[in-house]
Every structure is written in structure tokens, then in C-alpha cells.
């Protein structure tokens, strides 16, 4: 049992790192109402940029800013495909994701790059010092929650939220919805890449496969988080904190599965099923509800 409890700080750290990524997913999925698959690529892009810069002697914080910028560029590419070329959002994200696969290999010059905290000074997050990393991660999470809370309360933030909620209304209220989608996608992927940069430091390497299924993990965290904080309140900062909580819970479950020596190969299957279940239930409820109430009340065109 001691082994299990001993693994918990690590699980919480993983949860907080992937929580940063899940907040990026929250921005596109819940605020912009776009399922953006770019993230499967931009996690690794952030990690690759950060790792390569660090091993070339660049300051870790600067490397993380560069990773953020790389993610923003990835978001802009998806926006271009989706808004300028009119490609459906899902496909636009997949196209960028595929482009990033090549880009990430080129950035790293191979399938992976090691950035051990033993070799490179200044690495902030590392599993060799889980306690210290946890403190930094808590600070990072708090800063991200605070910054996004303030941002989505500004005029631009409100315009992004309105765009995701109702495009017709937004344009009728003079909002350039195309620009708001750009800001949302760029911000989201920037944050996701930042998560990748933190992750590569923590695990000591960047790897071409590290973003695989990130969208599903992120959605699972968002969904678990929503279930956790629903009863507590509706404050936006609380919802973001819930995303982190959801991610931490996800990784604690993961550790438990590992501890019980269950087959971790099945975890992605379970994650996907969980997401499908939680996304499907509201729809099914609506379908069943419609049958029981009078059907003709819908005010169509």
C-alpha cells in the first residue's frame, strides 16, 4: 500500500500538467464550441520546441514562451483551414495535426529528444523532485486560472464566448466572429503547447507520440471536472479549477490501474468510452424527453 500512496504525488503532478492541456481543450470545446484535434500534435510541438531550445542552452522560461508561441502558430494554421478555406473544424484540426507530425520530427531531428534535469540547469518541473514540481505546478495552474478568468471577462473575452455560443447573434452585435475564432484557437493551442513544454521537462524527454489521444484525455478531464464542480457553483474560475481537478482524478485512476496491475493498454479504450458516454447521455436524455413531451412545440423556421 505504501507503494500506492507513494505514487500519488506523481499522479497529482501528471494530472496538473495534463490539466494545463485540458484547459486548452476546454477553451475550444466548451467556449468556442469547436472540437479541435490540433492538440494531439501541438502537445508534442510545445515539448519539441522546449526540449531542443533547452539542450541548445536557452533559458527554460524562454524556451517555454517559445513553445507557447509555436502552439499559437499551430492554432492559426487550423483557423486558416477552417475559417479561410471553409474546411470543417474537425478535419481542419486533423490536417494540422498531421502537418505537425512532420514538423515535430523536423524540430527534434528524430523521434525523441532527452532533456534530463541532471544535465541541464534551470529545469523547473522534474519528476526527480516531485514535491518542488508540485509547488511550481500549483502556481502555474493558479496563474493560468487567474489569467483566463480575467481574460474571459474582458470585452474581447466576452466576444469570444458570444462567438462560441451564437455566431448569428455575435455578428448581429457587430462582432467579427472570424477574428474571435482565431484568438480562441491560437490561445487554446498555445496553452496546450505550454503543457507539452512542462511535460517534456517533467518526464525528461520529448517524444513524437506524447500527444497521441490528448484530445480524448483532455475531454475526459473536462467532463470529470464538470461533474465534480457542478454542485459547488457556476463561477468560471471554479470551472477551470474543475478541469484541473478532473485531470488529477484521471491520473489517480490511471495510477490505481497501474497499481492493481490491470492492463494499462486498455486505458485509452476506457477514456474514449467514458467520453462517449458522457457526451452521449445528454443527447439521449433529450431524445427521450422529446418523446414524452408534446413534439409539435418546436418553433422551427
Amino acid at each position: 500500500m505504501g507503494n500506492f500512496l507513494g505514487s500519488m504525488p506523481g499522479a497529482v503532478a501528471q494530472g496538473l500538467i495534463w490539466g494545463i492541456m485540458a484547459v486548452g481543450v476546454y477553451i475550444t470545446f466548451r467556449i468556442l464550441d469547436i472540437a479541435d484535434l490540433t492538440v494531439d500534435g501541438s502537445v508534442c510541438t510545445g515539448a519539441a520546441v522546449c526540449a531542443v531550445l533547452v539542450i541548445n542552452g536557452v533559458n527554460v522560461w524562454v524556451a517555454m514562451l517559445a513553445a507557447l508561441a509555436a502552439g499559437i502558430v499551430a492554432g492559426c494554421v487550423t483557423w486558416f483551414f477552417h475559417v479561410v478555406l471553409g474546411i470543417p473544424a474537425i478535419l481542419a484540426g486533423i490536417l494540422t495535426q498531421l502537418m505537425l507530425w512532420s514538423a515535430n520530427l523536423k524540430i527534434m531531428g528524430g523521434a525523441n529528444v532527452a532533456v534530463s534535469a541532471r544535465q541541464f540547469e534551470g529545469i523547473v518541473f522534474t519528476q526527480m523532485d516531485v514535491g518542488g514540481s508540485l509547488i511550481w505546478l500549483a502556481v502555474t495552474a493558479a496563474v493560468i486560472i487567474g489569467a483566463l478568468y480575467l481574460f474571459f471577462g474582458t470585452e474581447i473575452g466576452c466576444a469570444i464566448r458570444a462567438t462560441g455560443c451564437n455566431g448569428v447573434m455575435s455578428r448581429a452585435q457587430g462582432i467579427n466572429t472570424n477574428v474571435m475564432k482565431l484568438l480562441g484557437l491560437a490561445l487554446s493551442n498555445g496553452i496546450v503547447a505550454l503543457a507539452g513544454a512542462v511535460l517534456c521537462q517533467y518526464q525528461g524527454f520529448s517524444d513524437i507520440n506524447m500527444g497521441k489521444g490528448a484530445i480524448v484525455t483532455g475531454l475526459a478531464s473536462v467532463i470529470i471536472g464538470e461533474a465534480v464542480v457542478r454542485k459547488i457553483g457556476k463561477n468560471f474560475a471554479l470551472k477551470l479549477a474543475g478541469v484541473f481537478a478532473g485531470s488529477v482524478i484521471y491520473w489517480i485512476v490511471y495510477q490505481t490501474v497501474v497499481f492493481l496491475k490491470l492492463d494499462t493498454d486498455l486505458l485509452k479504450m476506457l477514456s474514449a468510452l467514458l467520453v462517449a458516454l458522457f457526451l452521449g447521455v445528454p443527447y439521449l436524455k433529450k431524445q427521450l424527453g422529446m418523446k414524452s413531451s408534446r413534439g409539435g412545440a418546436a418553433n422551427g423556421k
Partner: peptide, 11 residues
């Protein structure tokens, strides 16, 4: 015409 159209429901 559609009352859903003119406002942002989640705001």
C-alpha cells in the same frame, strides 16, 4: 423569428 437566435444563451 427564432427566440434562440438573438441572444447568447450561455451568457
Amino acid at each position: 423569428q427564432d427566440p434562440m437566435m438573438g441572444t447568447a444563451a450561455d451568457m
